[in-house]
Amino acid sequence: MKLREHLTGETLALAGLVLVLALLPSLATAFFVNFVMTQTLILGLAAATIVFLAKYGGMTSLAQLLMFGIAGFMFGNAALDGGARGLNLGWHPWAAVGFAILVTTLVAFVLGAVASRTTGIYFLMLTLVYGVVGYFVFAQIVEISGPGGITSIQRPELLGPPVRLYYAGLLLSVLAYAGFRMLGRTAFGLALQGVRDDPVRMASLGFNVPLHRALAFTLAGFVAGLAGLLNVWWNGQIDPASISIGPTLILLIIAVIGGMSSLAGAWLGAFVYVLVLTYLRDLPLVDRIGITEARFNTVIGVIVLVIMVLSPEGLTGIVQRLRGTTRKELGGIRP
């Protein structure tokens, strides 16, 4: 492909957006950068793996937050020494990073292999079961976490200042976005989309359908694991409640808000979610109608209901419809 073909309005807009984000620490307050935007990038990266699986593989996964959590727990287990809970292996932080990513990727491959012959709704339900079983594994097995989780996790020195964590999130997000986009044009990506559209035909052409699904799930698990590492560094701790069924649904909801057929929508959905999470309490009159920050989930749920009623393609779908360019192709959400 020539450079000229890449210079569409869309890519230019995205490049501009990345430039603005790169300059953001000198434009916005520290709170906005280190709290709102860092969280947006972390959740967006995790939600992007859901969109990737749905858009290219036709698989709507609810297990991505589990991968996110496994990476965090494994890092905590490996990096701490002499804390209260966990294995306390006391490894070098970067060795712990390698260990966490390795375990996450292996688990993703095994889970993906088990799920590789199911599709659509079945896949969604099976991955929800994965997520909840994973929650119970971490909540009940005290050797690796127990109900209280792992606390006082330090991030590697390289990422010491909070703004570096923001840049790490930005870098990984850009890499993941570009990587997923490029992967869609490789032989593997094209075969994966073929599997999504017509598994029977792909199988009869000699493609190994379950293997393609399992590998796509593994890759998504790997990227979700990276997001999980950022998250555990950002939070400094992780507990099983953070990967229970509620947060699991929230991550899917983030992907849905942005739109399941748009990779960039994952970050948009995360941005909307974090904005509502952060600023809802500051809205005037919110207390009067009985919606306080404690009723935050109701607000998020209603937002999703409205979006799903209006357009199954989420915010990006609504934007496209307003611009009169609604695409026929719905990606993961096909009627």
């Binding site: 969604l124 649904l249 899917l252 209603v302 199954p312 993961g332 009627p335």
Partner: peptide, 16 residues
């Protein structure tokens, strides 16, 4: 007939 849309709708209802 829009399975995934219906599922996501009921998920949102669950959260609320």
């Amino acid at each position: 007939g829009q399975e995934m849309r219906q599922t996501l709708l009921t998920l949102a209802i669950t959260v609320v």
